[in-house]
Computed example of a mutant assay.
Amino acid sequence: MDLKGKTLFITGASRGVGKAIGLRAARDGANVVIAAKTAEPHPKLPGTIYSAAEEIEAAGGRALPVVTDIRDETSVETAVAKAVERFGGIDVLVNNASAINLAGTLELPLKRFDLLQQVNTRGTYLCTQKCLPHLFNAGNPHVLMLAPPLDMHPRWFRDHPAYTISKYGMSMCVLGMAEEFRDRGVGFNALWPRTLLKTAAVDNLLGGPEVSSRGRYPTIVADAAHWILTRPARECTGNFFIDEQVLRQAGVSDFSRYRVDSDRSEGELQLDLFIRP
């Protein structure tokens, strides 16, 4: 199975993992809606919805860049309406857009707490709610959250409780909605990287190139997402997938092409948050 002719609505697809998922789908000939805020270049984070659209079309897909603030109901409704008008429907929703702040309770301003909850949990809920009426009409509808497996161990809450709460909110959407819409045939799944990923956010805001050199490229998540989104939705729902495990299940055994630093061994890679050794 492939994604040829399918329409993917991807939040935060102007860069990073979201763009990588869009590019992988574009190679199949998919339609990709780039729903993100970056219309003008960011001083530290390269890429806009328009540059991402150019890359997606160069890869073989059709792109629709739409300036979208997933915290705003009207903005999301407008983006969904434009997607349906342009491509005739929506087959896949990828809730990728996310805010991150790893500060502790005393250090995190309330406005930053609100941002985490509004983008991660509320934004995921909002985009899902607005896309579902169109997903019900799709042949193999999927909703994929870039969210971690649920693990109530205190280690994941101790250092950054607000961020963990917001990301687990996305995970709980998977848990609840998979059951809520199981009879409607919509697949709801979560996907999370086993290792740190090299993204502009890591390079510029969360440690720099030395840190990201201990990780993998976002293409590993994109390849895993492609495998999930081409499964029969009625048979593949309610799962908390890890990218490496997905690809092993798909028959991949050599992960060297995903490593940022080819001189590092697999054992030297840094595990991502929410992944136990």
Score class of each variant (00 low, 15 high):
Arg259Ile: 06
Thr48Ser: 00
Arg112Gln: 07
Asp114Pro: 00
Tyr168Phe: 12
Ala138Pro: 09
His226Leu: 11
Leu196Ile: 10
Phe157Thr: 01
Thr105Lys: 15
Val67His: 00
Ala59Glu: 13
Pro133Gln: 10
Pro277Ala: 12
Arg248Asn: 06
Arg184Val: 11
Ser166Cys: 06
Thr78Trp: 11
Gly267Gln: 14
Ala26Glu: 06
Asp28Ile: 10
Lys44Trp: 13
Arg122Lys: 13
Cys236Tyr: 07
Ile242Leu: 12
Lys6Pro: 03
Val174Ser: 05
Gly169Ile: 05
Glu210Thr: 12
Lys19Gln: 13
Ala52Lys: 00
Asp159Leu: 04
Ile90Asp: 04
Ile56Thr: 09
Phe188Tyr: 13
Cys173Trp: 09
Leu64Gly: 03
Ala200Ile: 14
Thr38Pro: 01
Pro41Lys: 02
Glu266Gly: 13
Met152Gly: 06
Glu268Gly: 13
Asn137Lys: 15
Ser51Asp: 02
Ala52Pro: 04
Val211Phe: 10
Pro161His: 06
Asn189Glu: 05
Leu116Met: 04
Lys19Leu: 15
Ser262Met: 12
Ile70Thr: 02
Ile165Pro: 02
Ala200Val: 12
Ala99Tyr: 08
Phe274Ile: 01
Ile70Ala: 02
Phe188Ala: 08
Ser212Asn: 06
Phe241Lys: 09
Glu235Phe: 04
Ile49Asp: 00
Lys6Phe: 06
Glu85Arg: 08
Val17Gln: 09
Pro133Trp: 14
